[in-house]
Amino acid sequence: MKPSLKSGLKHSFSYQVPATKTVPHLYDEAPQLQTMPDVFATGFMVGLMEWTCVQLLEPHLDEGEGSLGTHIDVSHKSATPVGFTVTVEAECIELRGPRAKFKVSAHDGVDEIGSGTHERFIVGWDRFERGVAAKRAQGPAKVDA
C-alpha cells in the first residue's frame, strides 16, 4: 500500500443500467426472481459500489496488491429503470492498517437510490491465492460449476 492512500480521498463512477443488471437477472436459476420487476437489482447496486471503491484504491496499491470486500452496510431506497445512469460517489473515511472504510452513495439522476458504508481489506494476491489453494485442498473432491 502506498503512502498516498489517505482518508478523504474521493472517487465517482457512472454506469448506465442495462437489462442484464435487473432483478430477474440476479440469479437466472431462481424462478422467484424471474417474476420480479425489471429494475436495477440491489445486488448489482452493491457490486457497483464495490467497483467504485476498488477504482478509488487502485492507484494507491503496490504491484501485486488488491482488495477484498469484507463488510457492506447500505440501504437501497429507490427503484431505477433500465437505461438510467447510476453514479456512485465513494469517499475513504477511515484507514486501519490494511482495512479501508468508505462512505458510499448512489444516485440515478432523479433520486438517491442507495447509501451507506463499505469496508475492504488490502491483500497481496500471492498470499491470498495460497490461502484459497489450501482451502480448496480441504474441500470437496469435485466442485460443480
Rank of each mutant, 00 (worst) to 15 (best):
V88C: 08
K101N: 04
L56Y: 02
G69M: 10
H107V: 10
L26T: 07
T35G: 01
A30Y: 10
S7W: 01
R130C: 07
H25W: 13
V17A: 00
F121P: 03
S105A: 13
I93D: 03
A145E: 13
D38K: 12
G83H: 03
L95T: 08
F84V: 07
H76M: 07
L56W: 05
V74G: 00
H11I: 06
P31C: 10
H60R: 03
E94I: 01
T22L: 00
F40Y: 11
L57E: 07
F102H: 04
E112A: 07
V39P: 07
L57G: 01
Q34M: 13
A100I: 12
F40D: 00
V39M: 05
R96W: 02
E50Q: 11
S115A: 03
Q34E: 11
V104L: 05
A19Y: 05
G139T: 10
R99I: 15
G109D: 05
P18W: 03
T85P: 07
W51Y: 13
K21F: 13
L95P: 01
E63A: 15
G43F: 05
V132Q: 04
R96D: 11
D108I: 08
V74T: 03
K101E: 10
E91P: 08
M45P: 00
T42K: 06
E129I: 08
C53I: 07
R136V: 14
E29T: 14
G124W: 06
H71M: 15
V86S: 02
T20A: 12
G43R: 04
F13A: 11
Q32I: 09
T117K: 05
G66Y: 09
A30T: 03
W51S: 11
D126K: 11
K101S: 12
C92R: 02
G47W: 08
A106P: 04
T117A: 09
K103H: 15
L57S: 02
A19P: 04
I93E: 08
A90T: 06
A90D: 02
V74N: 00
P98F: 07
Y27A: 09
S78F: 14
D73K: 06
G109E: 04
S78R: 12
E58P: 00
L56P: 01
F44Q: 01
F121G: 04
K10A: 09
C92Q: 05
A100V: 14
V17E: 00
T52E: 04
H76S: 00
A134C: 03
R136H: 09
F84C: 11
H118C: 02
A79D: 04
K10D: 05
S12F: 11
V86N: 01
H71W: 13
H118I: 06
P140R: 15
D111C: 11
E89A: 11
V17W: 02
H107G: 01
T22W: 00
V132Y: 06
G43I: 09
R96V: 12
Q16A: 13
A106I: 10
R96K: 13
D38M: 11
G109W: 07
E112R: 15
P81S: 14
F102A: 00
F128R: 01
H11G: 08
E119Q: 15
Q34A: 14
H118P: 02
H60S: 08
G114S: 04
H118R: 07
I122N: 08
V86M: 09
V132D: 01
I113M: 02
A41Q: 01
